Simulated scan of single mutants.
Amino acid sequence: MPGLKEIRKRISSVKSTKQITKAMKMVAAAKFRKAQARILELRPYADKMNSVLASLATTVEIGHPLLEVRLRKRVEVIVLTGDKGLCGAFNTNVMKAAFKLIKEMQSEGIEVSVSAIGKKGNDLLKRRGFTPRQSWLGISGRVSYLNAKEITANIIENYINETFDEVILIYNEFKSALVQKVSIVKLLPLAPVKTEVSEPQETIAAFIYEPSQQAIFDNLLPKNLEIQVFRALLESQASEEAARMTSMENATKAADDMIDNLTLQYNKARQASITKELMDIVGGVEALKQ
Rank of each mutant, 00 (worst) to 15 (best):
E157V: 03
I170R: 01
I281C: 06
L190W: 04
N267I: 07
V112L: 06
L67S: 08
L288N: 09
Y45H: 13
A215D: 11
S13A: 14
S183D: 08
Y159E: 01
N93E: 13
K5E: 13
I7P: 00
V285Q: 09
E173I: 02
G129Y: 08
K34G: 04
N147I: 00
G88K: 04
L278N: 14
Q36V: 10
M1Y: 15
E108S: 14
F217G: 00
D260I: 10
E286P: 01
L221A: 02
I20D: 06
Y159K: 03
M245Y: 10
K100H: 14
F90A: 03
I39K: 00
K22M: 13
N147C: 01
A54M: 09
L66C: 00
K5P: 02
A242E: 02
D260P: 03
A57W: 10
L278Q: 14
K175E: 13
R10C: 01
L80W: 01
P132R: 09
A153R: 11
T59H: 13
A46Q: 05
P132G: 08
L221S: 00
E108N: 12
E240R: 15
P132K: 08
L71M: 13
S115G: 04
E166I: 04
K268W: 13
L67T: 04
A57Y: 09
S115P: 00
E76N: 08
K253Q: 06
L40G: 05
L56R: 06
A97L: 04
E202G: 06
I184K: 13
A54G: 15
S115D: 02
L188Q: 02
M49R: 11
R8W: 10
L221R: 05
I156K: 04
I20K: 12
G109D: 03
P222A: 03
L53I: 01
V197A: 11
L137A: 04
D256T: 02
K84M: 08
A215Y: 13
V112S: 10
V114D: 04
T195I: 07
S13P: 01
L233P: 00
I156E: 05
D257Y: 10
A98Q: 04
C87K: 11
M49L: 15
G284R: 09
I208M: 09
V75H: 09
A205N: 15
G109F: 02
E277V: 12
Q180S: 14
L188P: 00
K276F: 12
I204W: 03
K15T: 03
P65E: 05
E157I: 05
R70K: 07
A29Q: 12
K175Q: 10
M26S: 14
S51C: 06
R142P: 01
A30H: 05
A251M: 13
Y209N: 13
E104T: 10
G284M: 06
K73Q: 11
A272F: 12
K25P: 00
K48Q: 12
M258P: 01
V14L: 07
K194S: 09
R38N: 07
E199Q: 11
V75C: 09
D165T: 02
D260Y: 12
S236W: 01
E104Y: 06
L137S: 06
K175G: 07
V60M: 07
L146Q: 15
V69D: 11
S236Y: 00
M26V: 10
V193M: 11
V143Q: 01
V94L: 03
T246P: 02
P192R: 08
R72K: 13
D218K: 11
M105S: 10
